[in-house]
Design a binder for these strands. Structure first.
Lengths: 145, 145
DNA sequence: TATTGTTATACTCTATAACTATA
DNA sequence: TATAGTTATAGAGTATAACAATA
């Protein structure tokens, strides 16, 4: 083999993602939740009235595992499950006033995290990284049932 | 927030790593093990007589969780735990003849995997990706106890 | 006193299957 | 018959704490 272990993309990706995810976990721990909670709030904020499964694809979480995630946000009174009058099987998700008020603070946390990332990268590398990661994601369509 | 959710590096990294890792899992499943098993074999091959914890840092696995991983390789008679005469606390890991014979086949699997990755990337992008992932990894020293 | 390997255990994540209510 | 949400549970992966042997 021509490649040394430390250049294998699989392991490198694993370590990089562990590092970045760990920083994100620390970022949102003070608020009592994980990066997915923040991402869920952002989606509901941009798509008021969306149904739970709309979050599934964006977050890579199955509908059964979404339930608990949303439960936790409901418990903290940050989002609400309202009735969808057009299709009563689904819930219409909305941010509460409390959730809306909390978002800017969470955004600052996210920005601080992104700042730490940016400090590791040269100018323009962030965009390159995003493009490359998108390409890698194509290796496998994650089908979130 | 100026960023759309799909450009957040944290989630993108998560999805990319899930995709690549999934492909790696499929790659080594026919042999009855996971990517870490292959990585461990490669390390022992390049550092005959190394001790178990030498694998820890390279694989990001704690010494307690390494035990089972190595157990599995020993069960398949691919590596051997020999006595380290200089320090009898540690084991000296060696590939068995069977393990050595299996490596080329595993390497072909790994190369097929890398080929699938390469088909997603333009010329030279793989090297850029490796450099960027290394930088991101610096965000957090994973201390494998 | 510190280190290597080991064991046992707890905890988190994710996956799966079955159920209900609606469509 | 299919879909949205829910529940319960199993499994994998990881983390933690204690122990024996050796240094």
């Amino acid at each position: 083999m021509q490649h040394s272990l430390s250049s294998q993309i699989g392991l490198l990706l694993r370590f990089a993602q562990a590092a970045v995810w760990g920083d994100l976990l620390d970022t949102f721990k003070p608020f009592g939740f994980r990066p997915q909670h923040y991402a869920a709030l952002k989606i509901v904020d941009s798509k008021p009235g969306c149904k739970q499964q709309d979050l599934g694809g964006a977050l890579g979480i199955s509908r059964s595992n979404l339930v608990m995630l949303i439960d936790e946000l409901v418990e903290q009174k940050l989002i609400e499950r309202r009735q969808n009058l057009e299709d009563r099987r689904s819930n219409a998700l909305h941010l509460s006033a409390r959730g809306r008020a909390l978002l800017p603070e969470l955004d600052r946390g996210q920005q601080a995290h992104e700042g730490r990332l940016a400090s590791l990268l040269e100018e323009g590398e962030q965009e390159i990284l995003v493009a490359l990661l998108r390409k890698l994601g194509k290796l496998r369509k994650l089908d979130v049932t």
